[in-house]
Amino acid sequence: MFRQVDIQFEDFAIDEVLGTLKANTSAAGGFCFFAGVVRDMNDDEEIKSLYLEHYPEMTEKQLHRILDQAEARFGLLGAIVIHRIGSLAARDNIVLVAVAAAHRGEAFSACEMIMDYLKTQATFWKKEVTPEGDRWVAARGSDLSKEAAWGDSSA
């Protein structure tokens, strides 16, 4: 499987990612993309900006473990995960999960599974800057339920 994991301060361009995936997965006919963007409101408070911290020695390894599982389960032909770190403004891009498979079914499912695992297993933390001050974002119980719905996870 073709794969690329990037943790970066810079923005990303979805058309470039599609081009890279297509160029490296000649047998793929289905591509699925998920993009996560900074919201301008959360819990009824205005979000001015977001700070993203991560565990540099671990994050990339953990994302590769997640891709290992998606590859084994769905026979993916390619996957690119890009996650930004540092200071981001409202409406900035945060994360992109792009997958390539022979057909759409595997692509939709793999993209969703990678994203669900990323939310609960990848070592990133968000801090929101609001007019009321800074606050660390709390993990959501619903994210654990979505992860669990995929069954056994050994990442």
Binding site: H54, Y55, L118, K119, Q121, T123, F124, W136, A139
Partner: peptide, 26 residues
């Protein structure tokens, strides 16, 4: 050593042990 574990996990000299709150990326 960059692998999620629980409290029963044995430790050895040279290990890298990290503690953190539940993750909130994505």
């Amino acid at each position: 050593n960059q692998q999620m574990v629980d409290g029963d996990t044995a430790l050895n000299p040279g290990d890298e042990v990290a503690f953190f709150p539940p993750v909130t990326g994505g």
